[in-house]
């Protein structure tokens, strides 16, 4: 609840709102939103999670990719109300409080990013792949990332990053298992 909310000088027609409760990066968040509000805008402007970027408005570029109950979706063409009752993971929730996720580490180590704008979406799409397919082939990586556009890297180092993260994660799970 805001301490202060300005009332518009001219009385306006009430804007219909709907209450949504979404688990964002493991935290329960409740907001009153206009039904037309896009999920990307709720995350960016409402919750100030600006790591989710917007690049195209038409679901093509994938800069706005977030995980919706673990699956990658384009948050620029999903309504916030559609996320009611669901779990969303953004780049801010990818690593721990201080630790980086192996995908994040690998993108840095393999020079898998340049301007950084596609990177959050790219990393989340990669994480979703590795959750399903722990040991993907290069073709599987390229196919899984084909909804995400990068204009800087030419993808080769992104693919390398994801394959390297897969190895690291497998090493981790082997160590956990022993």
């Amino acid at each position: 609840m805001a301490l202060f909310e300005e009332i518009a000088a001219e009385p306006s027609e009430p804007v219909p709102v709907r209450r949504v409760t979404i688990s964002v990066n493991g935290e329960r968040r409740t907001a009153d939103v206009e039904p037309r509000l896009l999920l990307a805008h709720l995350l960016r402007q409402g919750l100030r999670l600006t790591g989710t970027h917007i690049g195209c408005d038409t679901t093509n570029c994938g800069a706005c990719t977030v995980l919706f109950d673990g699956k990658p979706v384009k948050s620029c063409t999903m309504l916030a109300v559609q996320a009611d009752g669901h779990e969303i993971t953004t780049v801010e929730g990818l690593g721990g409080a201080s630790e980086l996720h192996p995908v994040q580490e690998a993108f840095k180590d393999e020079h898998g990013l340049q301007c950084g704008f596609c990177t959050p979406g790219m990393m989340l799409a990669a994480k979703a792949l590795l959750d399903e397919v722990p040991d993907p082939t290069e073709d599987e990586v390229r196919w899984a990332l084909s909804g995400n556009v990068c204009r800087c890297t030419g993808y080769q180092n992104i693919v390398k990053s994801v394959l390297s993260a897969a190895q690291k994660l497998q090493g981790q799970s082997a160590a956990d298992g022993s």
Partner: peptide, 15 residues
């Protein structure tokens, strides 16, 4: 610069 970009902590115009 990657330290902020991989955490979603870049500071682009719309942020």
């Amino acid at each position: 610069e990657d330290n902020r970009f991989i955490r979603g902590r870049g500071n682009y115009i719309d942020d």
